[in-house]
């Protein structure tokens, strides 16, 4: 196992290089320069000023020179400064990552508890009324365009009923609140975003866990377990569920980049200060250092996450052995 881990960790190096190269390459293909937005067709800013910005940003140099420069800096853990506001990229990411992780981990917990219980119960009681109704509602949640449902919930729960704040992460008077008041305030702001992010993830996971459970329940070893006289509860939770986890773990690995990278749409709708907006703004402004920084950090965290998933895989499925 330790050998395997070491090998996988080593293999991450070429992967990371591949990822940064790919990001860099895609960026070069994108038309436009980071200087376009600053000089947003303002007749009072002449093209000489624009050229000067191009030189300052090193944009007149060929791409491989810039990539080499970038790698050299990153080796010293320096991701450079944003073109947009001159601030260190690492700092910009560090400011937003916690908010994104907070939102996504909360919704992940929601998704997992809800989806696994729904999935297992529906599989065990296949074709029951609960199975049908939950299938239906899970699909409604999955099938609805998220920004639309977010707006509807804002209107319904925020505006009409006045139960929840509409958008943002904190109230304007947050600074004046007591410690508990702060927690309560953030919690209220998080309800809608967590609910809406949860809604989409829930369906996929609930369906997959139901399918996986159905698959597993029919397997011989489950029948054997039953035949041994184990209680139905033990059969389902100890034997069947553990095997059903395999495809679910795969799914979790797939969710990682979004988990870290955030979602531009949720964050825009909910005026949430996360990674998705940072990334999208960087794309639109062609803010290369920020883009490269995000690409690399998200990739690194995702790779580590995937490794973890593979290790969990081995625990869940004794048939898979890693040498």
């Amino acid at each position: 196992m330790i050998n395997y881990l070491a090998r996988r960790l080593l293999m991450m190096i070429p992967l990371l290089i591949g990822i940064t190269l790919m990001t860099f390459f895609i960026m070069q293909l994108a038309p436009g320069k980071p200087t376009d937005l600053v000089t947003d067709l303002n007749p009072k800013m002449s093209s000489e000023a624009r050229d000067r910005l191009v030189k300052l940003y090193d944009l007149d140099k060929p791409w491989h020179v810039r990539y080499a420069k970038w790698v050299k800096r990153v080796a010293r853990l320096d991701f450079g400064e944003s073109f947009r506001d001159g601030r260190p990229v690492m700092k910009k990411i560090a400011e937003r990552l916690p908010a994104t992780l907070l939102l996504n981990i909360l919704s992940l917990i929601l998704i997992f508890t809800a989806a696994l219980s729904i999935g297992i119960y529906s599989a065990v009681h296949k074709d029951s009324l609960f199975d049908k109704i939950s299938t239906f509602f899970v699909y409604v949640g999955f099938s609805v365009p998220t920004f639309w449902v977010a707006l509807l919930l804002m209107i319904g729960l925020g505006l009409k009923l006045g139960l929840l704040p509409i958008s943002g992460l904190r109230s304007i008077h947050y600074g004046d609140l007591s410690a508990w008041g702060k927690v309560w305030d953030m919690a209220r702001h998080l309800v809608l975003p967590v609910l809406v992010t949860g809604l989409t993830g829930l369906a996929a996971l609930a369906r997959y866990s139901r399918s996986a459970m159905l698959e597993v329940i029919r397997q011989d070893y489950v029948r054997t377990a039953r035949a041994k006289g184990l209680s139905e509860r033990d059969v389902i939770l100890k034997h069947a569920f553990r095997n059903a986890l395999i495809p679910i773990v795969t799914l979790l690995g797939l969710m990682l980049p979004e988990l870290i990278g955030g979602s531009f749409i949720f964050e825009t709708i909910f005026a949430y200060p996360g990674m998705g907006r940072l990334g999208y703004d960087a794309i639109m402004a062609r803010d290369y250092p920020v883009l490269m920084g995000i690409g690399t950090i998200v990739a690194l965290l995702t790779l580590l996450g995937n490794l973890l998933a593979d290790v969990l895989y081995a625990f869940a499925d004794p048939r898979i052995r890693y040498q």
Partner: peptide
């Protein structure tokens, strides 16, 4: 590993690709 590379990109890279090419 190729899939891993692709899977490391969050959705917004998809958008970048749309406008890139």
């Amino acid at each position: 590993r190729f899939v891993d590379i692709l899977l490391c990109f969050p959705t917004f890279f998809l958008i970048l690709m749309v406008i890139a090419f």
